[in-house]
């Protein structure tokens, strides 16, 4: 027994050591990024400071590694947190909670529970079967995709922590309110009938038993997986963003996407809904647009529509929800996102 414990602790020590070295390397890379890219652009490539091409190239060379570093670091941390949660645990936590408290908790758990939209159906059935109210279930199903970790990292990297916090906060409010409204409407009859007939027992939750080296291993796997999937979108997005940054005059978009254009928020949402998988590439472009006069509310509404209201997820949910309920779901969330957009345009 003692030898096994020794082996485990040695394994853990190695994990901590690797983690420490990786964090230092990450920090150094992040710190030297700006001077290195400036040196590269203006001294090695010999581009003039303040020239259009120089600005565009510097923007590209600095932003691509910065966003990829942020993406890697944050996905790692988020996945570590998520190893402490599981769909089973969330279901147990939500069971027996009242409407209201349940909606708030469901939206919060939507951030930390590992979730992929392919899982929306079994999750929905499992939740509803264990007596979690329909509205609370929807609060979870809305928060989980709306508060998207890739989008969060990109917003943080390109707009700073304030905008990132606003994004998370308004995502939570949208999920809670939309869930409360759907719950109040009493739409259980629009859930497909077979859902109520399924006899379901959930497995035991093992998220608490996992060792640290396994958590770290899963987080590393998630970083490889997600960065591997989105890096190309990020590069293309930043390249387009760099072009806009260098060549489009400041305030060129103020009339089109600024606060004064009342229709810009709904238009941004309508454009955003079908753009699901390109969230990673869209944000760098959006950031450059904002620099040229597009307003924050419009940009956030666009973001949420892109990540939150996805066509694939609604198609998947159609298996358990009748078309009327799908329509209410999409309608309520769309209206909530549009209102949030206007709200931000008003206050910020």
């Amino acid at each position: 027994m003692a030898t096994r414990e020794q082996a485990v602790s040695r394994q853990n020590n190695r994990t901590y050591l690797t983690l420490g070295v990786a964090s230092i390397a990450w920090y150094v890379a992040y710190t030297v990024l700006q001077p290195v890219t400036e040196y590269l652009t203006y001294s090695i490539l010999g581009l003039a400071r303040g020239s259009r091409l120089g600005d565009a190239v510097a923007f590209f060379l600095y932003d691509v590694p910065k966003i990829l570093l942020l993406l890697g670091g944050m996905i790692f941390l988020i996945t570590i947190v998520r190893t402490f949660f599981s769909a089973e645990r969330t279901r147990a936590l939500l069971g027996g909670k009242r409407v209201g408290v349940g909606n708030v908790l469901a939206a919060l758990l939507g951030i930390v529970t590992p979730f992929c939209s392919c899982s929306a159906v079994p999750l929905f059935i499992g939740f509803v079967e264990s007596g979690i109210p329909l509205g609370v279930t929807f609060s979870f199903l809305i928060a989980a995709p709306v508060i998207n970790e890739v989008a969060l990292v990109l917003l943080f990297g390109m707009f700073g922590w304030r905008v990132a916090a606003l994004y998370v906060g308004s995502g939570l409010v949208i999920a809670i309110l939309a869930g409360l409204i759907i719950g109040r409407l009493g739409l259980e009859r629009w859930v497909e009938d077979f859902v109520w007939q399924i006899q379901f027992t959930a497995a035991q939750d093992d998220s608490a038993k996992m060792g640290w080296d396994e958590r770290v291993e899963r987080a590393s796997a998630a970083v490889r997986d997600i960065v591997g999937k989105v890096w190309l979108y990020v590069v293309i997005g930043i390249a387009v963003g760099a072009g806009i940054h260098g060549y489009v005059p400041t305030d060129a978009l103020a009339d089109l996407m600024g606060k004064s254009a009342w229709w810009s928020v709904p238009a941004a949402v309508l454009v955003g809904v079908p753009l699901y998988s390109n969230a990673a590439g869209v944000i760098p472009i959006v950031s450059a647009l904002m620099e040229k006069g597009a307003s924050l509310g419009t940009v956030l509404a666009f973001m949420m529509a892109v990540v939150g209201l996805s066509l694939p997820e609604t198609i998947i949910l159609r298996r358990v929800l009748k078309p009327q309920l799908i329509a209410v779901f999409v309608g309520v969330v769309t209206v909530a996102i549009i209102i949030t957009g206007y709200l931000f345009n008003l206050i910020v």
Binding site: S86, P122, L123, A203
Partner: peptide
């Protein structure tokens, strides 16, 4: 099929079953 998937104690897919054990 969702109905068949839900015969196993599963809340999130993908799931792997070896000899009827999830």
């Amino acid at each position: 099929d969702v109905r068949d998937i839900m015969k196993y104690p599963i809340l999130s897919t993908p799931g792997l079953v070896v000899n009827e054990k999830l």
